[in-house]
Design a binder for these strands. Structure first.
Lengths: 342, 342
DNA sequence: TTGAAAGCGCTAACAT
DNA sequence: ATGTTAGCGCTTTCAA
């Protein structure tokens, strides 16, 4: 565009350095098996000409793109409220950058886009995909499997089809929830409630499972469904107080939910943690450190999960194998962070 | 990878349709000047073979990539707390998708990455760039100008160098601020304070300017600097109350700041809006609608700004011209949204 | 309207 | 260790 100032080619570099194109190529790609003086001359030519390899030409022959798609399914409205995805993206970006790969972002808006994404992935424009799609009935994972592109999922995928073992990275949602509830029990609480996330997402389902693991059979009114948002947390907490005025602890499915719950508890004059103890999940700092009182919560290292997804995918790509037999799911540990609410 | 099941080429499609590669290519690219029966046959062949064009091969000859880079400078820690960027990204993504372009995301972490980004852009991997970099002294815009890639900035760029008129999309920060402050004046408030954003960002600087436009010379203690975060808002509000206990209105530089301010006002027993009226900026729904009381704020259509950036860039690309003489800055209007705090 | 053929810039055998 | 050469899959003159 602009100045039609066509960029220098390898040919030009070779000419300037007085070597063949092949030698120039070798130097540009690491310089193995080329004698020092020549390497030097080529390097200088590259420098002087400001040569940058034409990625399209390179891809055409290598069939590698050094690019990875990150697919985020939009039903995840969370993207826009929860720092979760942003943090994970940052982790992914850091790792890809470190390994000289580009990040192609694919945001989807509903079903129509699924086909588009599948086509894109199948089109072989990227070497692999990192996919966030945690809904139980999401057709995306199936489509992607069909596209035959190496893929790592963010969060345990919950679709029923797909015989193939999906590779994913997740945190120990169940174990983390168990820890939280156990902590509440240890505090002597007996009427421990749980405000769930959207149960069609595996993370929410797993956290509920963790709660049940510890609580066993319990008053069903102590479990109320919500949606990972602050306002959802408010609604749920309100209901909870109406139904079970004697509740003395709440395990919220995430920090945002806890935020809403705290708000309602304050409104209704319950002291935290004296009357009602509260624990969240995620440890998203700008939220957890700023609630009042500061939120006790289950930490997951979100950025690290992103890095790990990228690392896993890239190592798969470099081995050429679709990670068969490799760990099919990597589950990161969680830590209970004690602050003031429990 | 995986099944080494090499994808069908145009050649294969042509063969199957019984036409030349040239004709097949024409059909794939719109089918102009090809007679209907042939178009039909080629289309069917494409369908049957599941043909998808090899973008690398195509780019090699067209010199177009149908890809746009989105550069977000990391000092913007806001990315991870403020829905602002996520929304803008969504707008960008929608528009790019609609015009069949890919979004390559470049997140930068500090200066070292600047060079990397500049090199990437100069490398001609993408057709253009959308850049968020609103710091006064940011070297990035300069580097990018040097890369010679058509670029649209998100927010008025504030760097001093660069003679070339940069194309950018922004909202009317100054006008919006004026509206807000005027509204407070109309409410009969006389001790109107302003909690600023980081003043090395043009948006924050422009909002402060708007405040000054209306207030004229005023008690300097009524202006306190902050950083667009809730905790920053808390600190600033605390200071404000200490210095000027008679403050009766606050214009906060953004919603997150207002959130923090509201928190402190409540703690200190000031009624909102009776004792102190509060107005924010952005109208990020999950924040503004959920404060207590609901926040009166200046709305900017963030997603639309994203769309517009993309649209502007793409039309520039399609015209081949670097938008010289074209609008150098597009400033979207803002609206005051009255809720309960003012 | 259709086809033949010449590259786009690069890598990877293969020769030397 | 270096050079020669044959494509990678596509678009695009140019002829027919």
């Amino acid at each position: 565009m602009s100045e039609a100032v066509s960029r220098p080619t390898l040919e030009a570099v070779a000419a300037r350095a007085g070597v063949s194109r092949a030698t120039a190529s070798r130097v540009v790609n690491g310089g193995d098996g080329v004698r020092e003086p020549l390497v030097e001359r080529v390097r200088r030519a590259v420098e002087e000409l400001g040569y940058v390899p034409n990625q399209a030409a390179r891809s055409l022959v290598t069939k590698r793109h050094d690019a990875v798609a990150v697919v985020i399914a939009e039903p995840e409205t969370r993207i826009f409220t929860d720092p979760f995805f942003a943090l994970q993206l940052r982790g992914i970006s850091k790792e890809l950058t470190a390994q000289d790969n580009q990040l192609v972002l694919l945001l989807t808006e509903g079903r129509d886009d699924h086909a588009r994404v599948a086509r894109y992935l199948a089109g072989g424009h990227v070497d692999g995909a990192l996919v966030f799609s945690l809904h139980l009935d999401d057709p995306l994972p199936g489509l992607i499997e069909g596209a035959g592109v190496p893929t790592v999922f963010g969060g345990r995928p919950g679709w029923s089809g797909g015989s193939k073992s999906a590779v994913y990275v997740d945190c120990d949602n169940r174990g983390g929830a168990e820890d939280a509830v156990r902590h509440l029990v240890g505090l002597g609480r007996t009427r421990i409630a749980h405000i769930t996330g959207p149960l069609d997402q595996t993370s929410a389902a797993d956290r509920l499972q963790g709660y049940r693991d510890v609580m066993g059979e319990t008053d069903p009114r102590l479990v109320v469904a919500s949606d990972f948002t602050p306002s959802g947390g408010e609604r749920a907490m309100g209901e909870l107080l109406d139904r079970c005025p004697d509740v003395d602890a709440v395990f919220a499915a995430n920090d945002l939910t806890a935020l809403g719950a705290l708000r309602v508890l304050r409104e209704r004059g319950r002291r935290v943690p004296e009357d009602v103890a509260v624990i969240g999940f995620d440890d998203v700092l700008p939220v957890a450190e700023q609630t009042e009182p500061a939120l006790t919560t289950v930490r997951q290292d979100i950025e690290e999960m992103g890095r790990l997804m990228a690392r896993l995918l890239l190592s798969t790509l470099n081995r050429g194998e679709p990670a068969t037999g490799a760990p099919t799911g990597v589950v990161l540990p969680t830590t209970l962070i004690r602050r003031a609410t429990a």
